[in-house]
């Protein structure tokens, strides 16, 4: 896939101190480096190796991914929210490309 397209799901509103679930998906072939093409040559590895989530600049969750992570990686996790703010999500490719997206939450 030429460009990785991220999608995230989380509640738009929460109460102070709530623990919310965050679900993320990104389209990416996660080429394992183990696969051979029709000519029998190894297809070079190209995966997203790091996923990071921050809230208002502070780390919440991260994951180091290896070639056994499925294509179009799904990653869910939780966050405890004490204030309104912005979640930032970043997916870092083997080649250094970083795909980012953000999501706002209002905490009452």
């Amino acid at each position: 896939m030429a460009t990785a397209t991220p999608r995230v799901r989380l509640p738009a509103i929460a109460k102070k101190g709530d623990i919310i679930e965050i679900k993320t998906l990104i389209s990416h072939e996660m080429e394992s480096g183990q696969r051979k093409d029709s000519a029998g040559a190894l297809v070079p590895r190209k995966i997203i190796k790091l996923f990071e989530a921050q809230f208002n600049g502070h780390p919440v969750f991260s994951a180091d991914w290896n070639p056994s992570v499925s294509a179009n990686p799904y990653q869910s996790f939780f966050a405890k929210v004490e204030e309104s703010g912005i979640f930032e999500f970043a997916w870092t490719d083997d080649d250094g490309t970083v795909t980012k997206t953000t999501a706002k939450i209002t905490v009452t």
């Binding site: 623990i19 969750f61 290896n66 499925s70 996790f77």
Partner: peptide
């Protein structure tokens, strides 16, 4: 397969993937 890293701000030590 993967290493998942949490912080106290995670609130819950739980994760899902494929």
């Amino acid at each position: 397969v993967a290493s998942f890293r949490f912080t106290p701000a995670s609130g819950r030590a739980a994760t899902s993937m494929r």
